[in-house]
Amino acid sequence: MMKLFRKMLKLIFFVLNKLGFMIMPVRNISCLEVSKNMSILSHEKKNTSVTDFKLDQLQENPLVILLAWMMASKKHTLKYADIWIQKGFDVLTINVNPWQFLWPVKGTQVVAADILKFLEQNKTYSPLMLHGFSVGGYLWGEVMVQMAHNMDRYQHILDRIVGQVWDSAADVTEIHKGVPPAVFPKNKMMARALGKYMLYHLKTFDKVATRHYIRSSQMFHTTLVHAPALFLLSKTDTIGTESSNRRVKDNWESMGIPVDWKIFEKSPHVGHFRKYPKEYTNQLHSFLDTIDISKGKLKQKESEENVNKIKVKQ
């Protein structure tokens, strides 16, 4: 009887996987929606609520800011989040849609401001890790552009970041190649048409789009985040290319930023984990072992003490 029950369970799990459902691990993953673009994933259900990006309870877990690729499904982002949740992190997942990407002033720049607002209002989330995919590098560039306008206000966020992981980071010069297959993964004709439109979009809408992509790219190359970095890429990826990632790597190393570098042989764009799951996970774990997780908390405490000193003097 027990053998029959086990076989039935296996069959149910197999069918659910074929239908595209995510089979949760025993420990479970809870999800708290912060906005239409952001959610917090954690090991246990949080008895808390969000009002205007502020959690009503203090959160003292380390936090991963997971900047997903275009049109990333919840099923796929959960798999990456689970790696970090097993290590005791909460995960802030961030997604943007094609419209927000094409019209950054009313799209990605609004999302970037929301990211800063969340991190500013939930200071006890510390330390912070970045894990960005594809156009997630562009989105983080938009975040840093806004930080650069008011460093006194946002320095505490930079101080809390202890590490950064960039998977298949796509440069602005390759976005017309990266976005179309993400939007139309099974329709090559529509993907080609969107690619042609994006080239037209870049040439035509400089003031409301192209110059913002370029500024974000410049900010990504001259990053405000000096925490150790890990780049994950593939020799066969034509979107997050080795050459464009190497330029970033060289710039960062010239600034004194420690950079780890892993090139997979034949994985597709943002597909390294799917093709090489053990190697990918081991690489993340090894990178995490080299990071001083306590550093973010210490820097945050120093920043708060400095603020209190200023208040006393006043």
Rank of each mutant, 00 (worst) to 15 (best):
V208Q: 12
T223V: 02
W140L: 04
L78D: 12
L139T: 04
P104V: 00
M189R: 06
I29D: 06
M147N: 15
I214L: 13
P62C: 02
E33H: 14
F287E: 08
M8F: 11
A170E: 12
P62Y: 05
R211F: 05
N306C: 12
E302C: 02
V96Q: 10
I23S: 09
G195C: 00
R274D: 10
K18H: 14
Q59H: 14
N95M: 06
P258S: 13
L199A: 01
L4K: 15
A68F: 02
I94A: 03
S254F: 06
M198K: 13
R27T: 11
R211Y: 04
D250R: 11
K123G: 01
Y138E: 02
N251L: 00
K313F: 13
R6I: 10
E304M: 10
H212Q: 12
K299R: 07
T241I: 02
H176Q: 05
G132P: 05
N150V: 03
E142P: 04
K275L: 01
E302V: 07
A169M: 14
S243M: 07
T51D: 11
F231T: 05
W261Q: 07
L58Y: 09
T77S: 05
V26A: 15
S168Y: 02
D56A: 04
K79F: 08
H43V: 03
K203M: 05
K75H: 09
L224E: 05
A209L: 04
F231D: 07
